[in-house]
Design a protein around this nucleic acid. Structure first.
Lengths: 215, 215, 215, 215
DNA sequence: GATGAATGAGGGTTCATTCAT
DNA sequence: GATGAATGAACCCTCATTCAT
């Protein structure tokens, strides 16, 4: 019994250290960038010894891999769940946008790292995780495709392209926040969720604009 | 006369080597990524001696800076020109989208490098060039803002956010091509130009979808 | 207890490696010169891995800085101590000369490095350590100044200049040994100590020479 | 005739450029140090093209070699001439000290370069020119030796050591000026010439000091 | 588990020197 | 003579990773 508890204790402690390192890595990667930081910076930030990082992770890359996958899989889970529900497509897309914006609001460093170091890194991490990344795009594309089949979305717009445009719009808002080009008050986050969906689904054009255009 | 020709010859030759290096760098950066390639890879690809890279550029960074600025400034020029013309806002945005897609079609490696290594690189090149990058966002934001003032675009959507969403949608299409997630035949490029504008301006929603939603 | 011993062991071992590198650096700097040697030469001479040099020292410069300061500070200590004692000025100067000659005799490489690479290097290390170097000159100048005030030394000779002449005379003897222009048997070292003081204090001139001159 | 004049003209012009480069090198070596400056720095300072330095000199080293030898040979000439004259030894030594101090006063940069980069550089230029350098020491040693044979100088002090002490005292005064540790007004230079000879020949000790010492 | 000393390959940059014009 | 583009060897330093304790 007591030995069992000690074991649990130890395991828990170990898990804690691992988490400590991951959280420290997020801050360091966000602050300095993956390439510009050293493994020792992570250890220092975590307040652990140099070599301990290698006790829990096989390499510096694996730390980032872990961070990315942890978060991306949660997002995939959310998307899959949304996908399975009976819900207007617009609400589905808003759920996804909300999740991503909430993720940024909750842990901007982590989302910064994912967006800056992974999803665009075509020659390194982006390439490694392309299948995982793609899954999100495909799921969103599937939702749009369904909406098109139901006549709710225009069919002239290729669903895969539309999915990319939608996702790209969201990521660019995050990029705007990361570069401090866009305001990031609580209200801004809230409106951003609606805004991106309204833009992509309803369009920027007003009724008047549309009439003007169509003459 | 002859000395004049020699001068021209010389100058031209020198400029050629510089261009040779820049073009080689595009290919190498695109193939391996900025961090993963060595300066010697660029020199080898250009077929020049190692040190010559440093004769024309102060550092490896400066090579990428040069590539980015060359292209981005051409784009800024285009945007400014479009901005100055009398033209429906939708046409303006399509001109921009067209320019970017054409740029990719014409030199995918260069656009890959810019998108992968610069515009998202918040801790390195993106940060260095943030003012230049921002100028594009601001110009687009200005166009949208004007359209809102004219009642052609919905006013509830913050113009700065809308501009980011629009630009992000385009970049993500390029990202899709870069990762080979989207088809990139001549027809695809052509339709992409229209598609991204139609999505952002007109919205994905069909008339039927809109009625369904508004009940 | 045992952990304490391990700590000591570890610390000692670490200190040993550092010392190993410093001692190797002395030999390498003396043999090849600071500029002509590579950091790998030091590592090889010490029998340690290349990177270990950078584990203990921030740069190649810092290795030389350390060597210089270690020795120069011992000398300053000696000079300060001598300065504080009640002792004829001639004995004080001889103590200093003795210390320097002994230093050379004990570790000619180290003194060679200091004299060749530091005390004259007006654009590099000499400039870096000028304040520390000057302290020695000033202390000697102070001794001479006191002797002048006491009437024991001629007052027409500026004490600062005299101190420089005295120190320069000694360093030049070392330079003579370094270049193998002067004999360096045990007897030579011993006589050199006396000789330099006798020259600077008593003068080269014999009683007869003086009478001849003054007529 | 005219071709001859043109030849002369050309030769003269060439010699001028060579001199231009040498003079520029003195300034650059003095300012930055031999190792820290680049050949292009010399060319820039001289206002000539990069490659021209290599038209007149086989290497960067040869530039310094030339500067050193030019000056040192003039000094050797002076010492030899003084050596050949009938003159009290003290006057001979003062002539040498005067020449060196005058050299510094006239062109401090050149003397700085010689003292900092050559006469102590046991592993590079000092070693290359050791025979030439030594000649000066030997000539001075010879003078002292003669004076000892004539009974004018004490015989207990080895002439070679005494010569080194004398020369070292002078060089150290220059070092003091170079490091700006000693005042260098016109009066200071003048007094320095006398001072160094008085110190080495007459000694620092006053008559009172001597009596005190000898009891 | 935890520590941090030890390793050594790798790469950016410098710069003396060459050479075509 | 004069120019400066071109060459490429050399070297300092970084830092991911290993390993003995």
């Amino acid at each position: 019994m007591s030995s069992g508890r000690v074991e649990t204790q130890r395991t828990k402690s170990a898990a804690d250290k691992r988490r400590l390192i991951l959280d420290a890595a997020v801050r360091v990667f966000a602050r300095q960038g993956f390439h510009a930081c050293r493994v020792s910076d992570i250890a220092d930030e975590a307040g652990v010894a140099y070599g301990l990082v290698y006790h829990y992770f096989a390499s510096k890359d694996e730390v980032l891999d872990t961070l990315f996958l942890e978060r991306w899989n949660v997002m995939l889970e959310l998307i899959r769940q949304v996908d399975g529900e009976q819900m207007p497509v617009r609400d589905k897309l808003e759920a996804i946008a909300s999740f991503i914006v909430d993720s940024y609001q909750h842990d901007p460093d982590l989302m910064k790292v994912i967006i800056v170091e992974v999803t665009r890194a075509a020659n390194s991490f982006g390439n490694t995780h392309i299948a995982t990344i793609r899954e999100a795009y495909d799921l969103i594309g599937g939702m749009i495709s369904e909406a098109q089949a139901a006549g709710l979305f225009k069919s002239e717009i290729d669903a895969r392209f539309a999915a990319m445009a939608f996702y790209g719009a969201i990521e660019q808002l995050l990029t705007g926040w990361i570069f401090e080009l866009l305001p990031q008050g609580p209200e801004d986050f809230k409106r951003a969720k609606w805004l991106v969906v309204e833009t992509v689904c309803g369009g920027l054009e007003s009724r008047a604009g549309e009439q003007e255009r169509l003459g």
